[in-house]
Design a protein around this nucleic acid. Sequence first.
DNA 1: ATGACTGGTTGGACCAGA
Length: 266
Amino acid sequence: MRIATYNVNGVNGRLEHLLSWLADTRPDVACLQELKTPDAGFPIAAIRQAGYGAIWQGQKSWNGVAILSRGTDPIAIRRGLPGDPADRESRYIEGAVNGVVVACIYAPNGNPVPSAKYDAKLAWYDRFQRHADSLLATGQPVVLAGDYNIIPTDADVYVPDRWRDDALFQPALKAIYLDLQARGWTDAIRARFPEGPVYTFWKYWRNSFARDAGLRIDHLLLSPSAATRLKGAGVDRAHRGKAGASDHAPVWIELAKPKARARRSP
DNA sequence: ATGACTGGTTGGACCAGA
């Protein structure tokens, strides 16, 4: 079972890119971020034509998240993180596909530091941590996939000193990412590639992709019962290199089938 | 340190992204 996350940076503006990626890589589940469209503008007809069902949470101009699943509709579990009734930003959607709970997240950027936006990012992560705890407590296989807007370590950025003041690279956010792992979540990419850069984002500016001046900010965190099934992971870099592509590349994992339960003898 | 790319808005120079 292949589960991918892809910040599409405009689902309508880059629909052809999305469709060609789905056709090329055939993920079973695809978590999309930065739809940049209200609900009514989500291109569900084209996505169904490509063989996928979907649930989505749109928003005019900014944000927006969706979960696609091949050959079926995801079962919607929740839209939005609990804990703040005033939150109107579409940054979280959660569903179930084939026995796996999948959360699709688009964390706030938080720049500049300090600012109200940075404070809002920390507050959002406080809610996210609480909800992640409650998901862990279910014991189900869970995948938290998306654009975290956190650069976890110096190994995840081309020139760390250039990013010290950035909201993506603050010690408080690295600590949150470590804390999630300490509580039981597995960083799938680092489980498969313990060392070296595995970038998922390259700025449009200054020829960043050609120079491989990237960041690792798109992550898939696995609950223990999902982590034991991890058998592959990667980044679809070729799709970042196409003309007019998103500034993010798709990131994916492959989960083995769950072990069959022992049958009771007749 | 600064600059320079992109989508979206409701019609233009902004905002936001990271």
